[in-house]
Amino acid sequence: MKTKNFSALITTIAIVLGFLIYWREYATRDQVTLIHVLLWQILIWAPWILMFLVFKMLVEKVKSIKYGRVLTVAIGFLWIAMHFGWFFMVSSTISPYVDLPGSKFGVYRYFFVFWTLIDFGILWFVVDKLRWRKEEKANTPLLFELTRGGKKHFCEPSQIHWLAAENYYTKLFTTEGMFVMRKPLKSFLDVLPGDSFKKIHRSTIINVNFVSELARGTGSTLDVIMKDGTKRRVSKSFVKDIIHFFKDRTN
């Protein structure tokens, strides 16, 4: 699921809730404007867009870790608790229903039921949707159409040794040699099998099946030695992840 689609979903939820709340509290319409209610709701739900980006990264990071799914859900519950804190803070300051009879913290009691159910519903939807997308890609045959010297070559992911970013292009080093595609490196992460391809640097993705050695450099640096002898430096932010990944793969 794309971020812009999720943003549209959250905006729709906020607007629909705004209309429902405004319609439900008909007795206060002379004191409250619809625009104020809608803006309040959009501000309440907007943080979910940022959390969606966190979940996209999280699902990719923990899917190879034992109990990774449990960890993802646990973080989701923590986020819901934080979202309630945000809800109380925003509602008690800018809610159009602040100080109106029957409201507390700018909300009415039934609001809590709606927000709780929607929060848990969105959490389930996000985790399930992202996991389903990953599993779907893993089960879908993938073939890259590459060109070199006016000839077309068809390459499976299993034939790719590693990929390197170069400006707006990506170099693919394969069993059939090196090819260049006019695509950014990050676009390959969305389609390559996550259990075989790991990002080790902002400009490098490797096929772990073609790694022959992990070599410690000076200090805390780490190099990946490919089976063809190529040495690629692992960025500091990826060192722990790469070490743990290969440790889990070995007996």
Results as ranks from 00 to 15, higher is better:
A215W: 00
F154E: 10
V90N: 04
Q31V: 10
L117G: 06
V208A: 06
W86I: 05
F125L: 15
L9G: 02
R233Y: 03
H36K: 14
T147L: 15
H244L: 13
I242M: 05
M1Q: 00
V16P: 04
F154S: 09
Y26M: 10
S203F: 05
T11N: 11
P157A: 10
A164M: 12
I80C: 12
M82D: 07
Y169D: 11
G85S: 10
A215V: 10
V107W: 05
I80G: 08
H36P: 01
K66R: 09
M226S: 08
T140Q: 13
I21H: 03
I122M: 03
T174Q: 01
F246V: 08
F84W: 07
L143T: 11
A81I: 06
S91T: 04
F238Y: 15
K4A: 11
M1A: 05
V234P: 13
K198I: 04
F112S: 06
L100H: 11
L142F: 05
H36C: 00
D228R: 01
D99L: 11
G68S: 04
V127T: 14
K151C: 03
L20H: 08
R202G: 10
F52Y: 13
R131P: 02
V54G: 14
F84K: 11
G149I: 06
R69E: 11
A74Q: 08
A74R: 06
S203H: 08
W48T: 15
E25S: 09
Y108N: 03
K183D: 06
V239P: 06
W23V: 10
S237G: 12
G18K: 06
K134N: 14
T28N: 09
T33K: 09
K199I: 00
F52T: 14
V90Y: 01
D228C: 07
A14Q: 05
L185E: 03
I242P: 08
H153F: 14
P101D: 09
L58I: 03
T33L: 09
D241S: 15
T221E: 12
G102R: 09
E135C: 00
L17W: 00
G217E: 09
T218W: 00
F84Y: 06
A27M: 14
P184T: 09
Y108W: 07
S95H: 08
E213Q: 10
L50K: 11
I10Q: 04
P184M: 03
G102Y: 12
V224K: 00
K61S: 10
I65D: 04
K134L: 12
E60D: 12
E135Y: 00
T230Q: 13
K134Q: 15
M178G: 03
F238Q: 14
S7E: 06
